[in-house]
Design a protein around this nucleic acid. Structure first.
Lengths: 114, 114
DNA sequence: TAAGGTATGTAGAGGCTCGAGGTATTGCAA
DNA sequence: TTGCAATACCTCGAGCCTCTACATACCTTA
């Protein structure tokens, strides 16, 4: 039963930035989207989600305005700022580097490096 | 100069476990090994390394004993316990799952999931 | 003898995730 | 109409981890 894993510190920002980059969304939908696309491996508790959103907004990476959902409820829709887009690219690249590096380590055997 | 990136919380344990799994090593050598194999993407400050080693030892995943280095200095050599080996496998699998999931999210485009 | 690499360790600051708790609305079923 | 579930927002505190900085000690080489 391979299910949810806690997100390592810092990766949540990257994921949120990515989802928002695809078009304006509100917080609740971001969490659903992440869960859906990751096949329930990534779960985002609200206690992580909303602080993260505010953090990103305060850092000037996101902007938000209240609108109505399709279902008629008020929700805060987030969009990426120019700065946010740059940050997303930087963090995505950085993530790739890290994943590659850890991949090297994890596949390393006795005669690793001399 | 794309260089070092801070390690997300939790991944350091995995990396240490992996290096120790290849044979007895002392702390300082673990850090060097990680840096070397990862081509300097992964850097492990001593302030992260030693607390992590003590943590793992307290959790019963590692055992240690003092021996002499080839160069004649005293050093604490770590080995993996049975529990540590199991933990390593679990964490490696968990890491893979996470990387795959995040990969899905990062390559997601407009028509992501309906 | 001064410098630099090897080797271990601690303390404190800062940052992030998470569980638990709280508010309000909508829609459906009992 | 009462209750429950889902949608949608939010805050607080605990807990954990990483990092910078500091401190110690040995050995070799210049």
């Amino acid at each position: 039963m391979p299910t949810k894993s806690d997100l390592p510190q810092g990766t949540l920002d990257l994921l949120i930035l990515k989802v928002v980059a695809l078009g304006p969304v509100h917080g609740y939908a971001i969490a659903q989207r992440l869960q859906q696309v990751s096949k329930h491996v990534v779960q985002v508790p609200q206690g992580s989600l909303y602080p993260a959103l505010h953090r990103l907004e305060n850092r000037g990476l996101l902007t938000a305005d209240w609108k109505e959902t399709e279902s008629g409820r008020d929700a805060k829709f987030y969009r990426l700022t120019r700065k946010g887009k740059a940050q997303l690219e930087a963090e995505a690249a950085s993530w790739q580097r890290l994943v590659n590096a850890i991949g090297l380590i994890l596949t390393m055997s006795e005669g690793g490096a001399e």
